[in-house]
């Protein structure tokens, strides 16, 4: 140990002895200019809360209040004509679960499959846009959101044509005997693609792809390219650089993207309705028909709650597992 190193050594030891000595965020205290800047920002500290007000109001009126009425409805009984009374009928929940467990599972399965497909398709795309696109970057990003310029319904209907029995796509898949393989797996039926699980999952994947690409792009774009160079310099092959550096650093994007895809996809009913049959009915379709066709509001409300609870549990477990809070 050389003498000039002593001072820093002592400082390090002091820091190590008590983590509380380091600032609240574990960083050393900022220097003069940083402190001055903080004084200015201190003035602005209350500002964010004021700016939050509209959002909070929105949340109260359009989320919490409806949620309250929905909760009340789920334990009420009655009919639309005679009105609903709060009777604390909990059996609606168990009945909903018993009658429609198959639909719940199917929804989760379709949404999960679509999420995985989205991830597989979106990752290379987001990676290319973030690191390889150069001056095409903005154009490619515009193209990613371009489908939003037409309605969700129209786009989904278009898939009906794309996947129609005598269309080119299905003809091509038939020629390559891909439909034979998917039929064996139970994803399609005979030579058809439309009105099969595959069609519904394809529709979901297509419709939610941008919600996967954008957060992935955002987190990939933040990665300092010099980290890739550092990894390459430290004997990591391109594949290993991806696995050890790029992928872990893009995990926040992966988590955000999968949630933004999985959550709305599991409640979706348009894709199942337009591209599937009664055999592909998802929980969203059941809720929709309970509300609008059967007009059994308590059951519809109870099922919405169950769906919410199931998703909440899945998401919580998933975030815990992904451990994103560990990331910078």
């Amino acid at each position: 140990m050389t003498t000039p190193a002593k001072t820093s050594d002592a400082a390090d030891a002091a820091e190590a002895a008590g983590p509380k000595h380091a600032g609240a965020d574990g960083r050393p205290e900022p220097s003069g200019p940083a402190r001055a800047l903080r004084a200015i920002t201190g003035e602005l500290r209350r500002m964010p809360y004021l700016l939050l007000l509209p959002g909070i109001a929105w949340l109260i009126f359009f989320f919490l209040v409806p949620l309250y009425f929905q909760a009340k409805m789920s334990v009420s009984s009655g009919t639309l004509d005679k009105g609903f009374d709060l009777t604390w009928t909990w059996s609606t929940f168990s009945a909903a679960f018993e009658d429609y467990d198959e639909h719940f599972l199917r929804s989760l399965y379709y949404a999960g499959a679509a999420t995985i497909l989205c991830l597989v398709l979106a990752y290379p795309l987001a990676y290319t846009i973030a690191f390889r696109a150069g001056r095409w970057r903005s154009l490619l990003l515009v193209l990613v959101v371009a489908p939003f310029f037409t309605s969700f319904l129209v786009r989904t209907l278009a898939w009906k044509t794309i996947l129609s029995d005598n269309g080119t796509v299905v003809g091509f898949l038939n020629t390559l005997h891909i439909t034979d393989v998917t039929a064996t797996l139970g994803l399609t039926e005979g030579d058809r693609v439309l009105a099969t699980p595959l069609a519904v999952v394809t529709g979901l994947t297509y419709n939610f792809l941008p919600f996967m690409i954008l957060p992935l792009y955002a987190s990939l774009e933040r990665i300092d390219p010099r980290l890739h160079e550092a990894a390459r310099d430290l004997y990591a092959s391109p594949a290993s650089t991806f696995r050890r550096v790029t992928l872990p650093l893009s995990m926040p994007g992966v988590v955000a993207g999968t949630l933004l895809t999985f959550i709305p996809a599991s409640g979706d009913y348009i894709n199942a309705q337009l591209l599937g049959t009664t055999r592909e009915t998802m929980i969203g379709n059941v809720i929709q028909s309970e509300y609008l066709r059967v007009r059994d509001y308590p059951t519809a409300a109870a099922m919405s709650f169950v769906l919410m609870a199931v998703i909440l549990v899945i998401v919580t477990v998933y975030i815990r597992r992904a451990g994103t809070e560990d990331l910078v």
Partner: peptide, 18 residues
């Protein structure tokens, strides 16, 4: 680079933040 017997200390350090 990963096949060369050299290592670099980068101007910005480029430590892996994760």
């Amino acid at each position: 680079p990963h096949k060369r017997p050299v290592n670099t200390v980068f101007q910005s350090y480029a430590l892996f933040p994760h």
